[in-house]
């Protein structure tokens, strides 16, 4: 399997008036061709920031301050504006949390498709672009007549399908899905995940699925990355992560999912709250909330330990 995306030692900082938020700190991550990588973690752990950095879509004051992002060997961090724009939507697509606000309300669906297509394929005319959009809609299970409608005339699930259609219309090989089902109801969510699974095979997609919903990743992901406080806690095959989590944070995360089969009197919760990323705790960022804290955790950052395809950053596995 070829590596499609290789993130090395990436750091993203947000200088604000009270200091610098180290949203992503020294992250290494590799995506293999054709896999679905689930990226999970709680709000504010830097997972969305990581997703936005891949397309260099960080809003100011956010900035990539170090490291590289290699897409098929080319470093995205050092690309000029023109090069990065030709990747966006064309080779790497991204879909967002809220399909209700991700489509421009004043333009018809077909206009948004045509604009996207013609931006990247100058040789095409409007009619060809329109036909392509029609095919895409059929493929997504939406009647092609709806191309002539405005976003507000569609339901949330349909708009999310349109979003993914806009993302895939140019046959990208990498899709970054930033919490794509957060604002959908459970039934629509399940349908959407099924669709994503179909499309993945059809388009031979590599997907980075960013979510805080472990159920989502369980359904789709081949591998899972767990992020905590701007760093990666653990990366491993999905099964291994669910059945044998190594990092205490992952263990805590999994045991705080309600399970209908277990006869728990009370749901497990993790003590403490997410770290302050302006003044992150010294040593391991998780140590203040960890139940296995050792002396070394308090003042030294843990290294990566490898255990058969399973990477973990924790002193327990030294």
């Amino acid at each position: 399997m070829a590596t499609i995306l290789e993130i090395e030692d990436l750091s993203v900082h947000f200088p604000i008036n009270i200091g610098t938020v180290c949203a992503v700190e020294g992250v290494d991550l590799q995506l293999e061709q054709g896999e679905v990588m689930g990226l999970v973690g709680e709000s504010g752990c830097g997972k969305s920031t990581l997703g936005f950095s891949i397309l260099r879509l960080l809003r100011p004051p956010g900035k990539i301050v170090g490291g590289q992002i290699l897409y098929h060997g080319q470093d995205i961090v050092r690309m000029n504006e023109k090069e990065i724009i030709s990747l966006r939507g064309n080779r790497i697509a991204m879909i967002f949390q809220d399909p209700l606000t991700s489509l421009n309300p004043l333009f018809r669906i077909d206009e948004q498709f045509i604009e996207t297509i013609l931006t990247h394929e100058q040789g095409l005319d409007k009619e060809e672009a329109f036909n392509r959009a029609e095919k895409m809609l059929e493929n997504l299970g939406i009647s092609p007549e709806r191309l002539l409608e405005y976003p507000h005339q569609m339901s949330g699930g349909m708009r999310q399908r349109i979003m993914i259609g806009l993302g895939l219309i140019l046959n990208p090989d990498l899709l970054i899905a930033d919490e794509p089902t957060t604002s959908l109801d459970v039934i629509v969510e399940a349908q959407f995940l099924d669709l994503l699974n179909d499309l993945r095979r059809q388009y031979d997609l590599t997907i980075l699925l960013i979510t805080h919903n472990l159920g989502n990743v369980a359904q789709l992901a081949d591998r899972i990355t767990v992020m905590y406080g701007g760093t990666i806690a653990e990366i491993g095959p999905a099964e291994a992560i669910f059945q044998e989590p190594l990092h205490p944070y992952t263990q805590g995360l999994l045991s705080s999912i309600p399970n209908i089969k277990l006869d728990q009197p009370k749901l497990m919760t993790m003590p403490g709250s997410p770290p302050d990323l302006v003044n992150p705790p010294p040593g391991c960022v998780f140590h203040p909330r960890c139940s296995h804290t050792m002396d070394i955790c308090r003042h030294e950052k843990p290294d990566v330990s490898k255990r058969d395809g399973h990477l973990v950053r924790c002193w327990l596995y030294r």
Partner: peptide
């Protein structure tokens, strides 16, 4: 707005 970021993510100039 989200749709501006989304448009940017599709590579619109």
């Amino acid at each position: 707005a989200d749709y501006i970021v989304a448009a940017e993510a599709r590579g619109i100039q």
